[in-house]
Design a protein around this nucleic acid. Structure first.
Lengths: 245, 245
DNA sequence: TCTGCCAAATTGGCCAAACCAGTCCTTTAG
DNA sequence: CTAAAGGACTGGTTTGGCCAATTTGGCAGA
């Protein structure tokens, strides 16, 4: 009951990574604490040292652990760990807090209002075509009662892309990756998907016509609605959030 | 002449990671192109398959490559690769463009102006103490004519930390990581360090006294000065930027 | 000539046993 | 009591092998 064929998030959880990760969480290891040795892990998971070392290499680049030669493997602070590690954590069963939602929405307000302004002035015809295609796909999925979490992410990232600021796009990508699990929960409700779709259409129209003020206003309205929907979601069924995947 | 004992950036370039990375770059591989097999790499680098596999595991979590079972190893798009991979690239000898600087400064303007406002209202006494300590260290290093790139990063991240928004802090961290190499180049000049220090002191004062408007204004002024200094730097000695490390 | 099938080669994934070069701690000889 | 010797760890690395799946190529039949 540990995992199934869900190898479409990170391509190689490779089994061992997940095992080590949940081992760390279950045993409540503290930062800078020393973990079992490679050989212990291999024995514990009934696998080979090579497989363990490969997983450890991955976890080290995610900055979850630190390997000190001739000493041991040490757990690092959670804040130091990379986004990929957090995604792995979030993907299955980590507690889910209202403050995180509020934080996410605050950052979105900081970034997306200004991004949409830039997008208005710098967009090309290609950008419009791309966003249009995304919205069509959104509509298609909505009419089939499917979740649109990926299309929502694609829409917002396409706006960042239209700003022609590669650094901003990169930051936005890692940000959206970070909140991907929450988005999955959010769009489990069909009506929230419909509302987002309508908001998106209005935003695209403003960008296409290069109405800077209107675009920013529409984006702010969209984010406000999303924030309120989140509050409502959390107020009534906070425990549902964890179980959905 | 490939590498020396510079194992203080990412903890385990482990030699093989760097070798594979420069191999990819030298041979000008294109995205989605198939790389040599694990066994080929092992032979090429005169090492074992296990070492190669460990490096590949790391590169896979950095999303530089994709390993398809029973098929091969494929190069992914650069835009998909993680920040760590970009840092590795930047660390040694990648071209250096003015647009990147402009992009970075644009993002900083988007984020830090609002962040400093939040910091004013939400800061605790601890935040002030922390920032003060950073500024003291900055001053100490300046009087010893040392570069302050780490202290500069610490100062700005401490402001993000004072906003009490963990998501924002995380985004800012990855952002600063992304531009770490450029910062190293920037602070190679001592006078730019002094200017930043003075700006930082003014910003801290405003945050401490919770003067929201003044803090934002100081931050904007600081970012403007930094942007201009960058322009000047790039205009006169663009080629120096690449060679400095 | 074209088609279909089967076997060999190649791939990544994995395992086992060993050796190295350090660190740390205990034991032992002076 | 001290200091040297020894052993028991550690992560880092190599070698050599097996597995399952895919790809490939050649051979047989139509």
């Amino acid at each position: 009951m540990t995992e199934r064929n869900r190898t479409d998030k990170l391509e190689a959880p490779s089994n061992a990574i997940g095992k080590i990760l949940s081992f760390i969480r279950e045993r409540r290891y503290q930062p800078s604490e020393r973990l079992p040795s490679e050989r212990d892990f291999a024995e514990k998971f009934d696998t080979s040292r090579g497989a363990v070392r490969e997983a450890l290499a991955a976890l080290e680049t995610m900055r979850v652990i630190e390997r000190r030669p001739n000493s041991g493997i040490y757990l690092r602070k959670i804040e130091e760990s990379s986004i990929d590690a957090l995604v792995l954590y979030a993907e299955s069963g980590v507690p889910f807090e209202a403050k995180e939602i509020a934080d996410v929405m605050e950052v979105r307000r900081m970034l997306e209002g200004q991004a949409v302004r830039l997008a208005c002035t710098r967009r090309t015809a290609d950008n419009i075509r791309e966003i249009n295609a995304i919205l069509e796909e959104t509509n298609k999925r909505l009419s089939k009662k499917q979740s649109i979490e990926r299309e929502d992410e694609a829409f917002h990232l396409a706006i960042f892309s239209a700003t022609k600021n590669d650094i901003l796009l990169r930051v936005a990508r890692s940000f959206y990756e970070l909140s991907r699990h929450r988005r999955k929960v959010y769009f489990a409700d069909h009506s929230r998907g419909r509302q987002s779709y309508e908001d998106h259409c209005a935003i695209l129209e403003a960008i296409e016509e290069r109405r800077v003020g209107q675009a920013e206003q529409q984006m702010n309205a969209h984010l406000s609605r999303t924030g309120e929907a989140w509050q409502a979601l959390l107020a009534y069924i906070p425990q549902v959030a964890c179980r959905l995947t």
